[in-house]
Write a protein that binds this DNA or RNA. Structure first.
Lengths: 114, 114
DNA sequence: AAGAAATGCAACAAAATGGTTGCATCAATC
DNA sequence: GATTGATGCAACCATTTTGTTGCATTTCTT
C-alpha cells in the first residue's frame, strides 16, 4: 500500500462501515464492557443495558460484521470477544486524514510565501 | 477529566454521533476532498460524487453537526472548511479504548502468573 | 433590468436502523 | 426425562437516514 492511495475510494468503502459500527452509544458501551470485563455472553452483557437481549444480539452482529468482535460457541452459550485489530485500522485511517490535512496546510503555507 | 471516567456513558454519547458522522463513504469522501483541496462550495463538491447537490448538502449538514466541518457565506456561495479538532477527539477516544484493552490484558497476565 | 449561477427549502419515497414480542431449539442439571 | 437457562429465529413496528424532485430566493454579471 502506497501513501498515495491511502485515502482512495476503495479505502473509504472499507473504513465507512467500521466507523458506522462505532457510531452508536450502545455498541461503544458493549466494546467497553468487552474490553474491561473480558469475554462475555449476550445474556451477561444485556444485563448492563436498558434494551432487550435480542437488541444486544443485533448490535453484536453489527460489531462482528465490522470485525470489532468475534464469537465462539461453548456448550449452550456463545462467548463474545473484543478484537483490537480493527480498532487499529480505524486509528490509522484517522491518522492518514490528519496527515493529509497537514500536507495541505504545508502546501498552502508554501504558496503564500511564494 | 480523570482516566477513570474516560470511557463513561457520558463520553459514549459524545463519541457516538462523531463516529456515526464518519460512518458513510460519501461523507468520508467529502472530508478527503476538503482536506486535500482546501475549502470548497457545495456545487464544486457535488461534482465529484454520484449524488445530487441537495444530497451533498445534507451530508455536509451532518458533518457540521458533528463539528467536523464549518461553513461561511461569501456572496452567493457558501464555503465549507474541514475542521481537524473533532478528528482529534475521535482519535483520542480510540486511544482510550486501546489502552483499556491493554490494561485488561495486563490484569489477565498478572492473574495467570499468580 | 434580465438572465444565469449558487444556494435554500419543502415534500416526498425508499431503505436501513433499532427496537419489540413470541416462540423454537439446544444444552445442562436435577 | 423433565425442567431450566441460553441462544436462535422471525415477524413486526416506529423512526431515522438517504436520496429524489420541484420551486423559491439571493447574488453576480452583462
Amino acid at each position: 500500500m502506497s501513501r498515495a492511495d491511502a485515502l482512495s475510494p476503495a479505502r473509504l468503502k472499507d473504513a465507512a462501515p467500521l466507523f458506522a459500527a462505532l457510531g452508536d452509544a450502545t455498541r461503544l458501551g458493549l466494546l467497553v464492557s468487552l474490553c474491561a470485563g473480558g469475554p462475555l455472553t449476550v445474556t451477561r452483557l444485556s444485563g448492563q443495558f436498558a434494551v432487550s437481549r435480542q437488541a444486544i444480539t443485533k448490535h453484536l452482529d453489527v460489531l462482528a460484521e465490522a470485525g470489532l468482535v468475534t464469537s465462539s460457541r461453548q456448550g449452550r452459550e456463545r462467548i463474545w470477544t473484543f478484537e483490537p485489530k480493527r480498532l487499529e485500522d480505524a486509528h490509522h485511517y484517522l491518522e492518514r486524514l490528519s496527515r493529509e490535512w497537514d500536507v495541505a496546510l504545508g502546501r498552502l503555507k508554501a504558496f503564500v510565501e511564494t
